[in-house]
Design a protein around this nucleic acid. Sequence first.
DNA 1: AATAATATCTGACCTAAGTCAGAGATTATG
DNA 2: CATAATCTCTGACTTAGGTCAGATATTATT
Lengths: 288, 288
Amino acid sequence: MTNDLISRVRRFNRTVTSEVGALDTSFLGRGRPLGAARVLNAIGHGRGDVAEIRAYLGLDSGLMSRLLRGLEEEGLVETVAAADDARRRVARLTDAGEREYRAYEALSDTQAAAILARHPDPEALIAAMDVVAVALGRERIVLEEIHPRDEVARYCLGEYYAELGRRFACGFDVALSRDPDAEEMIRPRGVFLVAMLDGLPLGCVGLKGGTGEVKRLWVAPAARGFGLSKRLMTAVEDAARGLGISCLRLDTNSALPEAVQLYRRTGWTEIPRFNDDPYPDTFFEKRL
Amino acid sequence: MTNDLISRVRRFNRTVTSEVGALDTSFLGRGRPLGAARVLNAIGHGRGDVAEIRAYLGLDSGLMSRLLRGLEEEGLVETVAAADDARRRVARLTDAGEREYRAYEALSDTQAAAILARHPDPEALIAAMDVVAVALGRERIVLEEIHPRDEVARYCLGEYYAELGRRFACGFDVALSRDPDAEEMIRPRGVFLVAMLDGLPLGCVGLKGGTGEVKRLWVAPAARGFGLSKRLMTAVEDAARGLGISCLRLDTNSALPEAVQLYRRTGWTEIPRFNDDPYPDTFFEKRL
DNA sequence: AATAATATCTGACCTAAGTCAGAGATTATG
DNA sequence: CATAATCTCTGACTTAGGTCAGATATTATT
């Protein structure tokens, strides 16, 4: 068969790699080799430390050095010794470098916008891209602790609320729910964790200090089935132990059967209702 | 915003390009530079003509020549002058080259199978890949005339029947429909056209000679909204003119409103029922 | 038959990317 | 304080990929 699943994956690979020059806009059309453009972009993204850039881009020290000299000669970059350790060097953009970096950014934006604008269903395209990105990059998904009012956190919570709205027969209104104060999910009282892939938020979970409650467990549709919710729960339980919490509680809803099943499978036991929030109908606790 | 649609497309590009070494298995792990591996694979895929390979891979004639010499020295390839034109050379694999080519194929298959095997929902992944491939490669979609019993044609027809089964309240059984004999859709009587992207079938349409009927218009879900059905219809009408047909007919169903709308918009006029097929309820004709 | 066009090949040359050994400056460690 | 470790830099070298100007053989055109 020339159209079985394996052939189709291989064809996808071919299609995408043949477009890869177009995708990797980091050097497109500005007369600079890829290596130099990548270094410039890394510096622009806030990676100043030379060793850090080297590790990120996987470059040899000699090559890195030469690329930096080249950018210096172009007047785009300045390097100075690090304040705390004069062996290490820190690079930063000059004004001209800043302009050049912004030009690359604009180019990338334009090209991404063009792909979207020419597509009949941009939302569906993005959703498909997320599915593919997760499939290819699943090994690079990392958990990070962030502030629950951070932009990424707000995005995750927005998606979480939207999902509840779709799942609950009567919809979901945050205002009616016992929305935990964001301050409760910051150290030293609690934590807020997100799962990220190359900057794409794929899931979150919050630990509300004081009452010791787990809240806001969400995993993006594209990332379901990869065990991410379990990973988030394990991480939040570890964080709770670190905070000296010995017993965790959570409320959920039978309209979210995957979640309920996960809790049952991972050592949580059902307990009687412990709050008067209108949405949950199922309650769990776990001794750590 | 760091999570608007544009940022997400850019992040996808980054994720995919960082995996691109893994995607482009054409040279992975067999100790041969990419250029040589690509030429070897092109020959293995049946592209013997040197000029054709050169055009396909976008190579300079000098570079191509050197790559071929290298493969010859490895004993993988033989070149001979073309029978009809001694200026042109034709390359073909030796036994050793055939083995090496098959090793690359096995490598690609293994890697594609690995991506699928590790995914919780392979069908959804493939569907997402198709959506992305079409968005990136839409410019390369080409129409081809093939035999209606060809494997690609059968795939398209299978998808077409499955789609009708989903659309019609009572399902769809090919045996009950007036399935046009495949022989009716071959020149000189008729034609069968498919829309292809890098070997991925995205749509089809058939012209049944004799009665001058358009049949089996289908476009893959991932390729809808790109005007492909119009392109297929235009091509099939052109082919009909070429065959000396002056009036085309077709039957369709009101459960397929996009199709009905397309016909209305492109010069077709509704006519009374002209057959006793149980499925269609709407009939059109167009004078060419 | 002479000329133009075509396809491939060869040699000379170039850039990008990367490797490696060691030099030089600085910091950490016993 | 001497020594080891760390970080960057420089010079020498390699490979891959690609361009360009002819040379050569063959075919098409007038």
